[in-house]
Each structure stands twice: as structure tokens, then as C-alpha cells.
């Protein structure tokens, strides 16, 4: 129901952070999560909702490992 996209924090200015989405930048409120430049974050409607797990790239693998275990 809720369009949200991962982006990368470019800079933090008080309560707001500039977040980059492959060349599109949005000024997003950063009050709900502590963020710093370089963090990968999930933005919904101009607000950072969550930081992405540091090992994001591995998470797909983790999912497939888990259902592999379910299956077995």
C-alpha cells in the first residue's frame, strides 16, 4: 500500500537528510531513524522510515536459504 524506495543518504542537515535515488534527490525527514551520510535508507512520502541492513546484498540469499530449510 505504501510506495517506499531505498536510497542513500548524501548529507544530513539538522532534522532533514538529502537522500539520493540513482540521481534523483529528495529532502527527507530523518527524525525517526538516526542516519549518517552513506547509509542506505527506506524513504516513504518524504520521510525516512528505516535504515537498511548493512548486509543487504546477502538478504536475498538468506531468504532462499530459509525457504530451502522449510522445504527440507
Amino acid at each position: 500500500m505504501c510506495v517506499a524506495l531505498p536510497g542513500r543518504v548524501v548529507s544530513v542537515d539538522g532534522e532533514y537528510a538529502q537522500v539520493d535515488f540513482e540521481g534523483n534527490e529528495v529532502r527527507a525527514l530523518a527524525g525517526l531513524v538516526k542516519v549518517k551520510p552513506g547509509d542506505r535508507v527506506l524513504v516513504h512520502a518524504g520521510c525516512i522510515l528505516q535504515k537498511l541492513a548493512a548486509d543487504e546484498a546477502d538478504s536475498m540469499e538468506e531468504i532462499f536459504r530459509e525457504i530451502g530449510e522449510e522445504f527440507a
Binding site: P6, Q50, S59
Partner: peptide, 20 residues
């Protein structure tokens, strides 16, 4: 309950957001 979206979803969610 299974979490197949662990890159952003945690068991307890965003506590700050919940308080807000």
C-alpha cells in the same frame, strides 16, 4: 509469521515511529 523482507523489517519495527 515469517519475515521474507529482512533487509528493512525487524521483529519489533521502528519504535521511534510507533511512539511518534
Amino acid at each position: 509469521v515469517k519475515n521474507y523482507y529482512p533487509r528493512v523489517v525487524t521483529p519489533e519495527g521502528n519504535r521511534t515511529a510507533q511512539k511518534e
